[in-house]
Simulated scan of single mutants.
Amino acid sequence: MQAYVYKSQRKQDTYVYLAARDAFDAIPDALKATLAPFAFVLEVALTPDRRLALADVDQVRANLAERGFHLQMPPPPVPPVRVPRRDDPR
C-alpha cells in the first residue's frame, strides 16, 4: 500500500497520510481548515513489516483503507525531570 505524507503548515509536527496523492477531499472539512495548507513530504510503501517513527503501520494502513487518510499528531511533551538539590529535604 502506498501512502503520501503531507506536513501541516499550521500545526507543528502534524502530518497527514493520504491513500492517494493530493486526495485532500478524504480529510473532513473542519480538520482540513485547522491544518491546511499542506506541504508534500514523501511517498512511502506501507508494508506490514515497515517501521514508522511515530505511528503504528497497521493503524495507518487501516485508517487509509477505511477513511483514505491518517492523522499523525506530535507526541505529548515530556515532563521536566526534577533534580533535587542537596539541601532539599525531599
Score class of each variant (00 low, 15 high):
Ala3Cys: 08
Ala3Trp: 02
Tyr4Ser: 02
Tyr4Trp: 12
Tyr4Leu: 00
Val5Phe: 09
Lys7Phe: 00
Ser8Arg: 05
Gln9Thr: 14
Gln9His: 03
Gln9Leu: 15
Arg10Trp: 05
Lys11Gly: 02
Lys11Pro: 00
Gln12Cys: 07
Gln12Arg: 15
Gln12Ala: 13
Gln12His: 08
Asp13Leu: 14
Thr14Val: 11
Val16Met: 09
Val16Trp: 03
Tyr17Asp: 03
Tyr17Ser: 11
Leu18Arg: 04
Ala19Lys: 09
Ala20Val: 12
Ala20Met: 04
Arg21Met: 08
Arg21Ser: 08
Arg21Pro: 08
Arg21Gln: 11
Asp22Ser: 09
Asp22Gly: 01
Asp25Tyr: 07
Asp25Val: 11
Ala26Thr: 07
Ala26Trp: 04
Ile27Glu: 03
Ile27Gly: 04
Ile27His: 02
Ile27Phe: 01
Pro28Tyr: 12
Pro28Arg: 08
Ala30Ile: 10
Leu31Met: 14
Leu31Cys: 04
Leu31Arg: 13
Lys32Trp: 12
Lys32Pro: 02
Lys32Glu: 08
Ala33Glu: 15
Ala33Met: 13
Thr34His: 07
Thr34Glu: 14
Thr34Leu: 09
Leu35Glu: 05
Phe38Glu: 01
Phe38Thr: 13
Phe38Gly: 08
Phe38Ile: 03
Ala39Trp: 01
Ala39Glu: 12
Ala39Arg: 07
Phe40Leu: 03
Val41Pro: 00
Leu42Val: 04
Glu43Leu: 07
Glu43Arg: 14
Val44Leu: 10
Val44Ala: 11
Ala45Thr: 13
Leu46Tyr: 07
Thr47Tyr: 04
Pro48Phe: 04
Asp49Tyr: 06
Arg50Trp: 00
Arg50Lys: 14
Arg50Cys: 01
Arg51Lys: 15
Ala53Lys: 09
Leu54Met: 09
Ala55Asp: 12
Ala55Asn: 10
Ala55Met: 14
Asp56Val: 11
Val57Arg: 08
Val57Met: 03
Asp58Ala: 15
Asp58Lys: 14
Asp58Leu: 13
Gln59His: 11
Val60Glu: 08
Val60Pro: 04
Val60Met: 06
Arg61Pro: 01
Ala62Arg: 15
Asn63Phe: 00
Asn63Val: 02
Leu64Cys: 00
Leu64Glu: 02
Leu64His: 07
Ala65Met: 01
Glu66Gln: 14
Arg67Thr: 10
Gly68Leu: 05
Gly68Ser: 06
Gly68Cys: 07
Phe69Trp: 10
Phe69Lys: 00
His70Met: 05
His70Thr: 01
His70Lys: 06
Leu71Asn: 05
Leu71Cys: 04
Gln72His: 08
Gln72Trp: 02
Gln72Ser: 10
Met73Trp: 09
Met73His: 11
Pro74Ile: 12
Pro75Gly: 05
Pro76Phe: 09
Pro76Ser: 07
Pro77Lys: 12
Val78Glu: 14
Val78Thr: 15
Val78Cys: 08
Pro79Gln: 02
Pro79His: 13
Pro80Trp: 02
Val81Pro: 00
Val81Ala: 10
Val81Phe: 04
Val81Glu: 12
Val83Gly: 02
Pro84Gln: 10
Arg85Pro: 00
Arg85Ser: 14
Arg86Lys: 13
Asp87Asn: 14
Asp88Trp: 10
Arg90Tyr: 03
